[in-house]
Simulated assay, not measured.
Amino acid sequence: MARQDNPMFLRQRLRERLKKARETAQMTQIEVARYFDWSPSKVIRIENGKIAVSVADTRGLVARYGLEAEEAQELVELAKSARRPSWYAAYKEIMTPALEIFVAYEEVARVVRNYERNVVPGLLQTEEYARALLKGLQDNGDHRTLELRVDLRMQRQRILVDNEAEFFFILDEAVLRRMIGGEAVMRQQFEALLRMNEKPNVTILYVPFSVGVYPSFRRPYQLFEIEPSGGDLIVYLESPAGETLISERDASPKVVEPTDYLDAFSRIEESDDSKPITEEALFGTPAVGSANP
């Protein structure tokens, strides 16, 4: 599914255009709510993305805002498209709600930044590496569930061919030295990393063991820069306790902000501590201070 066909992206476009239409009509959110006999918060939640807008509500809103017939029909069709199932709906049985949102953000983001300290990022994994990793993490021996998880991971990688988005990866050297699936699997994975790094929209760096401590190195994270939505920044954190998504636009109190992780990522990326992925780094003698492969 192309980025412009993703339901989340379509919902963002729809609510932004509805908000612009309301402002052009010089109506307040309260006035709109009163006209439709809605709760005062419904228009607010539609425009900030807290709830989806139905096709029927879209028809009512465009009529109230006085849009021309062609534009009104365009927004109604947009509302219909936004309610269609995503491609990853087929994997719903193996996805948590947080993972569903994560995959949607991953697909609509203009820029994706990923720091990993233990394993190769999912978007860069070969099928063999992913299968060996997920099999080792799986609590039961359900072959069907394993294959669904592997297939989902492979399908997600289609976004890497979209040059409209940029992808930046920083790996701790432990990612490169940890043996997953055996020597043959690791060789294939290293070759895949070199191929991926040749793409114009993909940058892969690593931080050698010799660097020691560096910003936010204790926890893997992913950052999504989302457009439209006024340049929202989302951070995804995964731990044994569960998954967490934090939006920069979220008004609730947060211990950390997505910008904290963005600053940490940028400091590593721009420093001499991060090194490019090369054949020597992957297949040659590790840098001084590194553990043996």
Rank of each mutant, 00 (worst) to 15 (best):
Y206F: 15
V288I: 03
L99F: 12
V175Y: 02
V32G: 03
L18Y: 01
R64P: 03
Y91I: 03
P228R: 05
G230L: 09
V43Q: 15
W87D: 12
V211Y: 03
F168E: 12
V288R: 14
E68N: 05
E100L: 12
E164A: 12
N201K: 13
G136V: 06
A52Q: 13
T259L: 14
P240M: 06
R34L: 10
V119P: 00
A21N: 09
T278I: 07
R83L: 15
N114I: 11
F224I: 12
M8Y: 03
K19N: 09
A165Q: 06
N48G: 07
V288E: 14
S266K: 13
M1H: 00
F169H: 08
N114W: 07
A165D: 04
R3L: 07
Y261A: 06
R17Q: 09
F9A: 03
M1Y: 01
D232F: 00
R158T: 11
L237S: 06
Y236R: 08
A2M: 09
V256G: 00
L237E: 04
I204L: 13
R149A: 15
T58E: 01
N163S: 09
S41P: 05
L171N: 01
D273K: 11
G49M: 11
D272Q: 15
E71D: 05
F217N: 02
T285A: 02
I234Y: 00
I159E: 03
A241I: 01
R113L: 06
E47Y: 01
A89D: 12
I268Q: 01
I246C: 04
A90C: 10
R22L: 10
Q125G: 11
P121E: 08
E147S: 09
M179Q: 11
P293S: 07
Q138M: 11
G289I: 09
A21C: 06
E74T: 14
K80V: 13
F209P: 10
R3Q: 11
L176E: 01
Q26Y: 08
H143Q: 06
Y206H: 00
L262Y: 05
V62H: 04
S216C: 10
L146W: 02
L99S: 02
